[in-house]
Amino acid sequence: MLAFSFNDTLLVATVLFSIGLAGVLVRRNMVFMLMSLDIMLNAAALVFVGAGARWHDATGQVMFVLILALAAVETAVGLAIIVCLHARGRPTLDADTGNLLRG
C-alpha cells in the first residue's frame, strides 16, 4: 500500500483549499461559487481524514461524514435561495448584482 505522509495530505488539502478559494473569489456565477465552496469544504474534510489516519483515531472519518452532510445541506439551501430569487423577479446568476442594500 502506498502510504501518504501527513505532510503530503496537508499539501493536497492546501492546494484544494486554494483552488476553492480562488474559485469563490474569481467566479461571478453563483452556481460555480457554490461548487468552489464545496471544494473548500472537501479540502478541510480531507485534513480531518488525514489527521485521523495519522493519529489512528476514527473521529477523523466521523468528522468527514459530518462535513459531507453539512456540505449537502448548505448546497441545498444555496440552490433554494437562487430559485427563490428567480421566483421573485431577479433571474440572474451574477453575484455582483446584489450590491445595493435594497436587494
Binding site: 478559494l21 469563490v24 473569489l25 461571478r28 461559487m33 453575484a95 455582483d96 446584489g98 450590491n99
Partner: peptide, 13 residues
C-alpha cells in the same frame, strides 16, 4: 463599500 460579496470575501480572506 461597494456591496459586492466577492469583494468582501476577498478582504476577509
Amino acid at each position: 463599500q461597494n456591496g459586492r460579496v466577492r469583494w468582501y470575501a476577498a478582504w476577509i480572506a
